[in-house]
């Protein structure tokens, strides 16, 4: 593989991984926002309680981060690539 192709591959890989980061953050935001204001917007006397916490808080701020970590674990394990960082240009 020529240096030019190698450089192009590096550019594509790193751009893809950065976009994946944006996609995860968007999903993360939607989950956080959706449960907080979707469930939390009800009258407080209608709240259900999970582990003693109002349901919106549990889903948005407890279950959310747990699922986020599971997602990140999968991404790290199966998607992100190990590449050498000391790549010479020429």
């Amino acid at each position: 593989m020529s240096l030019e192709e190698k450089e192009k591959k590096l550019q594509q890989l790193t751009a893809k991984e950065a976009l994946l980061g944006v996609a995860i953050a968007v999903g993360h935001f939607i989950w956080w926002f959706g449960f907080a204001y979707g469930l939390g917007g009800r009258d407080p006397q209608d709240y259900q309680y999970i582990l003693g916490m109002p349901d919106w808080l549990f889903y948005s701020c407890v279950l959310g981060p747990v699922l986020l970590l599971v997602t990140l674990w999968f991404v790290v394990k199966f998607v992100l690539r190990d590449i050498p960082l000391d790549q010479e240009e020429d």
């Binding site: 751009a15 950065a18 980061g21 981060p65």
Partner: peptide
């Protein structure tokens, strides 16, 4: 919480 992964993934390996 987003700071935990976002900075590293966005700046990333590039």
């Amino acid at each position: 919480v987003v700071t935990g992964y976002f900075t590293l993934m966005i700046l990333g390996k590039r």
